[in-house]
Structure formats: C-alpha cells, structure tokens
Amino acid sequence: MMLGVRSMVFPAAAATVMLSAMTGPGDTAAPPPASEAGATPSALVPADDGARIIATDQLDGRTFDLTVSSPALAEKSKVRVLVPKGWSRDATRRWPVVYAYHGGRDTYVSWTRSTDIEEVSARYDVMVVMPESDDGAFTDWWNYGKGGPPKWETFHTAEVLQLMERNYRAGQDRAAMGISSGAYGAMIYAARHPGMFRYVASSSGTLHLTRPGIPLVTLFVQGFLTDSGDPFRVLGVPGVDENNWRAHDPYVLAENLRGTGLYVSSGTTGLPGPADHPEPGQEHSVQVQEVFCGMTSVDFLQRLRELNIPVTAHVYGDGWHNWEMWELEMRRFWPLMMARLGVPQQ
C-alpha cells in the first residue's frame, strides 16, 4: 500500500540494494499565483466538520491551487484542480469529476508535473481534482485504537468532496485513479464507500494488504516514511489489530466493488519496460516494489474473477515503478473511465 516511495533496485546478478526516488520534487517553474476573482475565503462554504478553503490561487485559465484548513488532518493541506472549458463558479450545471491520487514521497502537483493529464483532460468536459496525500497511507490512522489525526480517508472522501461540490460545481458522477500507494487509495476508498465512484483505475497498487509477507513490507515502508517513525500508528499491529488491517484490504472488501467500473494494471518482474531508460549496467535491474505490487494485483484480479466482478486488466510483466509506465497506463484507461462517466470526447 505504501510502495510508491523509492525504487528499491536489485541488480539481477548481485544482492546490492539501490534506492532512487521515483517521484521528483514539486513544480519549480510554475507561473506566479494570482488570487482568483470572486473566491474570497469568506464566500466559500465549509465542509460538515468545518474544513474550509482558506486560500485560492489561479495558476492559469484552468488550474487552481486550493489551501484547505482541515480538522481531519489538524493542519493545512493542498488541492490542485483542473476545470473544464466553460466552467464557472456560478454555473447552473455540475461537472463529472476525476479524483487523482499520487504516490509516496510526492505531492499534489505530481500528476500535472509528470503526465500530460492537462492535455488529455482538456479534450473532455470533466474536472480533475488532485489532493495532497503526503505519506498518509490513505487511511484514518489507527493510533493504537484512539483514532484522531491524521485522518486522510476523511480528508479525501468527506472534506475534499464536500468542498468541491459546495464551491466548485463538482458533481456526484465521480471516478478515482491512482498510482502506487495512490492506486491503493483509490481502490480502498471505492471498496469502503460503495457507490462513491463509478470507475476506479489502479496502476501499480498494493491491492492485497494482508497477503502473507505484505504486512511486514508495509510496516517497513511506513516506518521509513512516517514522521513519528512508528508504523504501528497507521493500521496497528498485524495479528493483534487484524480486523483493522482486513477492514483496509481491497482484496478482503472486493465484493463491495460490484457495479463499479474497474481497471487494474501492474508490472510483475520489476525489470525495465518499454517506457524505461535504464542507465548502463541497470538493464537487468529489478525494482522490488513493482514485484510486490504485481503479486498483490494478480491476487486481487483473481479474487474479482472468483466473485464474477468485471475488470479490465493489464498485467504487463516488465516495467519499472515510475511515471513513464503510469502515464502509458493513464492513456489506456482514460477513455474507458470517461465512457463510464458518460463524458464524450469534445
């Protein structure tokens, strides 16, 4: 679930581990922000729990960066929004929405930084919402049974949805897509909130969280990522808090996805694929996190077939855990996702 952090590269002929970031820093050359006309914070409607948009910057004709004061997170967080042609705040209509989640060690700018989502989405009458996920594991943290912040699931599935629908003319025809840990997030949100999304696309996600061995990998990565250094705060202790782990496993909750359009893709070998450009000497290097994602995605697909739940699958073998592969996947599933939302190409 948390495998979108760094590339753990194992040369096939040696046992050396190499770590290299798969996701880069935020935009460094973005145009200077300008305040959006008519969007003063006092004019915006808060979410049920008091979450509110406290700043709005318009980067260009389609792109807005929102700052949200979030009770669920007990801090401020960011959301990037791409609006479609003809959008306006005072429109009488609403727009279908794609919620796009990034992976670990990345930010809310990553989809626009690392893919051509701006150009792709511009051909459709659809809004794209890209919330910050930090390294929050796409769950309301267990905190040894005490709950409390950070509550990333609440931020994404309640606060952000309500703020978009109350202030940005977002509709309830929704899709979710994600890469790496964001792919897990998209799928688990759909499974835990049946009917919230009409379509879900997962690229290189960990979709069988309680598969033997995967909890240990997850704890290792969470310990590496979380500021506290305490991975047990996130989902609890495997075995002891098993019910909480199972309650956040897409494989276990797969039945809840019946009726939702599904796309699942992943590599399985961890070897470089057609979009990758390995350095000399890395032609046979294996990125272990893609192997784990592939194993769990294959498990998940088998579970869907056992339940007779339709899914479009692309298990492609070779391919690293990176944006080059994920952009190719986005181009594959985007038309399917738009068709499910009933949005024709313009």
Rank of each mutant, 00 (worst) to 15 (best):
W323I: 02
R211Y: 15
V68W: 01
W326M: 04
A37M: 13
D276G: 09
W323Y: 04
D241R: 05
I214T: 04
M196Q: 07
M18W: 15
D48N: 13
T56H: 11
W323Q: 04
T296S: 11
L336K: 14
T107E: 09
A100C: 03
A339R: 12
N322V: 03
D134K: 07
P212G: 14
M295Q: 14
N308R: 10
Y101V: 07
S297H: 00
V17S: 03
L271T: 02
G319P: 00
W141F: 08
N256G: 12
E165T: 11
L307F: 13
L44R: 04
H193M: 11
A247D: 14
K146Q: 15
L225P: 07
G205S: 10
S133Q: 04
K76R: 05
A339N: 15
I309G: 00
F155Y: 11
T296G: 08
P280M: 12
L219N: 01
H321G: 11
V288C: 11
Y144D: 13
G270T: 07
P32K: 11
A43P: 05
H156W: 15
W334D: 03
R105Y: 01
H156M: 07
A137M: 00
D106K: 06
E279C: 08
A37R: 14
K76L: 01
L209Y: 01
V81Q: 09
F220R: 05
A30K: 09
I179S: 10
R303C: 04
T28C: 14
A254I: 12
L219F: 06
G267Q: 06
M177K: 08
I54D: 11
P71A: 08
G61R: 09
M338I: 10
T63L: 08
Q302K: 08
Y251C: 10
S69R: 07
Q58D: 01
A30I: 02
H277V: 10
T218Y: 02
W323T: 09
I53T: 07
P150C: 13
S110F: 05
A34E: 11
R93V: 14
F138E: 04
G229F: 03
P250Y: 01
A13V: 04
D227H: 09
I179K: 01
R89Q: 14
A170D: 07
R94Q: 15
E165R: 15
L257I: 03
V120W: 08
N244Y: 05
G261M: 00
S7L: 07
R198N: 13
L301D: 14
G136P: 13
P131G: 12
V291S: 03
V264F: 00
F138I: 09
G50M: 03
I53Q: 12
K78G: 02
F10E: 05
M337I: 09
E36K: 11
N244Q: 06
Q287E: 13
P272Q: 03
R340K: 12
V128R: 03
A190C: 09
A43Q: 08
V315P: 08
T23E: 15
G104R: 01
Y189T: 01
L216H: 10
V98F: 02
Q162C: 12
G236V: 07
G26V: 07
F220Y: 04
Y189N: 03
